[in-house]
Amino acid sequence: QAPETKIVDKSRVACDGGEGALGHPRVWLQIPEDTGWVECPYCDCKYVLKGSKADAL
């Protein structure tokens, strides 16, 4: 199944896999201003900063 994409309001987000005990260790991710998105290294969930150029795609 394809990784999930989430639109977020802040450039710093936490990801834990979203499945409680079945998820992964919580990691904090920083969305770079130049790209407007970041992917979780564990679950490949893509976080897109709302209003960024990546959000316009």
Rank of each mutant, 00 (worst) to 15 (best):
Q1G: 12
Q1M: 15
Q1E: 11
Q1P: 12
A2S: 13
P3Q: 14
P3N: 11
P3E: 11
E4G: 15
E4S: 15
E4C: 15
T5S: 09
T5A: 11
K6A: 10
V8P: 09
V8C: 09
D9C: 13
D9W: 02
K10Y: 12
K10I: 12
K10W: 08
K10D: 13
K10E: 12
K10H: 14
S11G: 06
S11P: 12
S11V: 11
S11Y: 10
S11D: 10
S11N: 12
R12D: 13
R12G: 10
R12P: 15
R12Y: 13
V13P: 04
V13G: 02
V13Y: 04
V13Q: 01
A14R: 04
A14V: 09
A14S: 10
C15A: 00
C15R: 00
C15H: 00
D16R: 03
G17E: 03
G17Q: 02
G18R: 09
G18V: 07
G18K: 09
G18M: 13
E19M: 07
E19I: 12
E19T: 08
E19Q: 09
G20E: 03
G20Y: 03
A21T: 11
L22Y: 09
G23D: 07
H24W: 02
H24A: 05
H24N: 03
P25R: 11
P25A: 08
P25Q: 11
R26T: 10
R26I: 10
R26M: 10
V27D: 01
V27T: 06
V27L: 05
W28N: 00
W28F: 06
L29D: 01
Q30T: 13
I31G: 02
I31A: 01
P32W: 05
P32D: 12
P32H: 06
E33W: 09
E33V: 09
E33F: 10
E33A: 09
D34S: 09
D34K: 09
D34V: 05
T35F: 04
T35N: 04
G36I: 05
G36N: 02
G36S: 04
G36L: 02
G36R: 02
G36M: 02
W37T: 04
W37R: 03
W37G: 07
W37P: 01
V38R: 00
V38Q: 01
V38H: 01
V38P: 00
E39S: 13
E39R: 15
C40E: 05
C40G: 05
P41D: 02
P41F: 01
P41N: 02
Y42D: 06
Y42I: 14
Y42T: 07
Y42H: 09
C43M: 04
C43S: 02
D44P: 14
D44S: 15
C45D: 00
C45R: 15
K46S: 03
Y47W: 07
Y47C: 10
V48Q: 03
V48A: 01
V48I: 13
V48S: 00
L49T: 09
L49Y: 06
L49M: 07
K50G: 07
K50R: 14
K50H: 11
K50Q: 10
K50Y: 03
K50I: 09
K50L: 08
G51Y: 09
G51Q: 06
G51C: 08
G51P: 08
S52M: 02
S52V: 13
K53Q: 10
A54L: 06
A54M: 03
A54V: 03
D55Q: 01
A56D: 10
A56N: 14
L57D: 10
L57C: 09
L57I: 10
L57H: 11
